[in-house]
Nucleic acid binder design. Structure first.
Length: 221
DNA sequence: CCAGACGTTGTT
DNA sequence: GTCTGG
DNA sequence: CCAGACGTTGTT
DNA sequence: GTCTGG
């Protein structure tokens, strides 16, 4: 699955890469569920970048707390689940990142070793996500979830799920509002190429979501 | 018809 | 909101 | 994902 | 154990 990631790039890099204005943000070495994360959505005829709370709160939810359980959505069943089905056609988003963490359960069955996974030369990439808007008389709450898939050859040694990563044309398809065919959309939700991905162990400092500094991404010696 | 669920992961 | 179960 | 809390009453 | 918070 995907329950933690990094976005250490600067606002300038993001703006250049996506040709979009981005709001101010600080580099984050330990992005955790419930936090506000940067996302790109299709607004009107244009793309738009802004913050969404990580942990999907469907529009019909009675209580925001459901979001703590909805940090991921399985790509295989996206078009069947009531919480996600309706979002697949009209509420897709991309979530920029430059690494993500997965915890590997050691053979003793108790301890877990965190790994950081990166793409290419540590370059920026995007997760495929879905978003929704929840509102009461007092507030509006925008939230999102990250889509997962089965692991590629590299990831299966660490965990049995991995986030869906989109690049190039697939990013355009995902944000194209004219495309609503679920077969076309589901067809791009695949495990990323293991040959362009690397994983390295990191300190358990990353376990605590309050730790947010370069030590989180330092390779374990 | 109304009531009630709506999710993923990991662990047992 | 939308679907499943009774 | 992991960390950390998990409770009520009465008094200050 | 289970739920909330980050």
């Amino acid at each position: 699955m995907c329950g933690r990631f990094t976005l250490t790039a600067t606002k300038g890099t993001l703006q250049e890469q996506f040709s979009l204005p981005f709001p101010e943000f600080t580099p984050n070495y330990n992005v955790a569920p419930s936090q506000q994360i940067l996302a790109i959505v299709s607004g009107g005829n244009e793309k738009k970048a802004g913050f969404l709370h990580w942990g999907l709160v469907p529009s019909w939810a009675k209580d925001k707390k459901i979001g703590y359980k909805m940090i991921n959505a399985r790509s295989e069943t996206l078009d069947e689940k009531p919480a996600f089905k309706r979002l697949l056609s009209r509420r897709r988003c991309l979530i920029p990142a430059d690494g993500f963490y997965e915890w590997k359960r050691e053979d003793d069955g108790k301890t877990k070793q965190p790994f950081r996974i990166t793409i290419g030369n540590g370059q920026l990439f995007t997760f495929a996500g879905l978003w929704d808007k929840w509102r009461t008389e007092e507030e509006e709450y925008f939230s999102c979830t990250i889509i997962t898939t089965k692991p590629n050859q590299l990831m299966e040694s660490i965990h049995d799920r991995m986030p869906v990563i989109l690049e190039g044309d697939d990013q355009d398809i995902w944000l194209n509002k004219d495309i609503e065919d679920k077969h076309i959309l589901k067809n791009i939700l695949n495990p990323y190429d293991a040959n362009n991905m690397s994983a390295y162990p990191v300190s358990t400092l990353v376990n605590n979501p309050r730790n947010n500094n370069e030590a989180c991404i330092d390779p374990l010696s």
